[in-house]
Design a protein around this nucleic acid. Structure first.
Lengths: 143, 143
DNA sequence: CATTATACTGATAATGAATATCAATAACAA
DNA sequence: TTGTTATTGATATTCATTATCAGTATAATG
């Protein structure tokens, strides 16, 4: 599900930073929000290019970073593979089960773990801002 | 604490794979085991070079990968920073609190979280093999 | 001990994702 | 309309990691 105002958040962030509105930014945020998650820059570039052939790879890359900066995307980096960007809008935080064989992701969530993490940080005088939990193994089909 | 037979594990792994024993491998495993944790390839290379000036960077890199393969080291990769290798021998698994400001690590451990992760995987028909939990934020001194 | 097959090393090149550069262009405030 | 400056797109650069390869070392075998 996509929050209706995700695009507004992006445009607001652009404005607040004193940056400018361009049709490229619109094209990129539109494509990103309507695409399936876990995209690489390359993949989003291919999608955007289909509708807007003139757009450059660097522009997609730059704006994907802005989308991440304003909190609309999370970065997923596994081993030496390309960084993937996943939409966060309208979705709660979740962790990943990652299959080492077929490379598929399963999104999971557990409030109890989240709470324990908070406590763990607290016990170390640490202010937690974000976290990443990745469980590697074999999925249903590959085990 | 370093397990006395960590070096034996490495040499056994080398032998089991049909690889050969060299003085370079000895030098690298010795340096790795006696050094403080969280080293980059570059850092370990500097250490080994002090005692064995002729050794090559690629050799250190290659063998550090072997050390990781046989389970004596874990890889820590944060953002776009260089991969760091941390000795696992004689130590239980632990997670990391990572300070976004001073880049320091705090090692933490929580059995309850580990158990919840097991259950989370099980509930998804997923066979967990290893996992990585990183909590980013601000440490005691930086908050 | 000599022979032989082949793994290893070390220097360097290649790879590839991410970022920087820069001239031309576009946005937008005045 | 004009001027300032952020943006774009093509390309170059950076940098960690991996691959290449000729010469060497290892270890098994005769």
């Amino acid at each position: 599900m996509i929050t209706p105002n995700a695009k507004e958040i992006f445009r607001g962030y652009i404005k607040a930073k004193g940056l400018r509105h361009t049709w490229q930014r619109d094209a990129i945020i539109d494509a990103f929000l309507s695409a399936a998650g876990h995209l690489t820059v390359e993949e989003l570039f291919q999608i955007v290019t289909r509708i807007h052939p003139g757009i450059g790879y660097a522009t997609v890359h730059r704006n994907l970073n802005l989308i991440r900066e304003c909190g609309l995307a999370d970065e997923i980096k596994i081993g030496n593979e390309k960084t993937r960007f996943e939409p966060t809008c309208g979705r709660t935080h979740h962790d990943h089960l990652i299959c080492l064989k077929c490379k598929c992701f399963i999104e999971v969530n557990n409030n109890q773990i989240e709470q324990l993490q908070e406590r763990l940080a607290e016990a170390n005088d640490f202010l937690p801002l974000r976290h990443k939990l990745e469980i590697y193994g074999l999925c249903k089909n590959c085990r």
